[in-house]
């Protein structure tokens, strides 16, 4: 593949490919929900669905955050054109993770939901992170980008604190074996670190 695809190539080949790849985890989950090809959700289906959506939410946050450094690395701006779609996938997986908790795990029991959000620090962190992501999803359109101008970039820097909160949320809910959570934290640290480093050098 050439490193600088043209506008048309991005629009008609790369973007659809990325879309299909990004929706694949959700498709696989649906197959498991429906029990197609003997796939199952295992003995604890609600936990499976919720954890699966949460981890993919985090993965897409990290993938979205690697686009800019990737563009720096190859010294070409074209990957930036994939960033909005990947960010919206991140938001989708995060929202579905939250909805799974609300509907499947808590069965929409409002008092239990409120008490958990207030009393359980790891859930408070998750909620804050999701709240930070909402304005980013809303203002992701071209129209909002134009309207906000330079402020748009500043607003979208909210993804950095949101990502930190998510990693913390993940780490805090682990019972004992934090190795996986720490690996994700390390990836985030690198992605935020290269930004600081780049800034210092400018």
């Amino acid at each position: 593949m050439t490193l600088a695809p043209g506008k048309q190539q991005i629009r008609f080949i790369i973007k659809p490919m990325v879309f299909v790849l990004a929706i694949l985890p959700l498709t696989l989950l649906c197959l498991r929900v429906l029990g197609i090809y003997g796939a199952t959700l295992g003995p604890n289906p609600i936990e499976t669905v919720q954890d699966y959506l949460g981890i993919w939410g985090l993965r897409f946050i990290l993938i979205s955050l690697s686009i800019t450094p990737a563009a720096w690395l190859i010294k070409k701006p074209w990957p930036i054109r994939l960033r909005r779609m990947l960010g919206l996938f991140a938001f989708t997986y995060c929202s579905l993770h939250f909805l799974a908790w609300l509907v499947l795990d808590q069965s929409l029991d409002i008092s239990a939901i409120i008490s958990d959000v207030i009393k359980r620090p790891f859930i408070t962190l998750g909620t804050l992170a999701l709240l930070l992501l909402i304005p980013l999803a809303v203002t992701s359109t071209k129209g909002w980008q134009k309207r906000l101008g330079a402020r748009w970039t500043n607003l979208h820097r909210l993804v950095y604190p949101a990502a930190v909160l998510i990693c913390w949320h993940y780490y805090w809910q682990v019972k004992l074996d934090t190795i996986d959570a720490l690996l994700y934290c390390a990836v985030l640290a690198v992605l935020l670190g290269v930004r600081l480093w780049k800034r210092k050098r400018l």
Binding site: A112, S115, Q173
Partner: peptide, 19 residues
């Protein structure tokens, strides 16, 4: 300290079973 013990999830249920 990190989660409630008031309710429990019975293993082997469906996606829509309550705790």
């Amino acid at each position: 300290p990190r989660w409630s013990q008031a309710r429990e999830r019975r293993i082997g249920g469906s996606l829509f079973d309550a705790k």
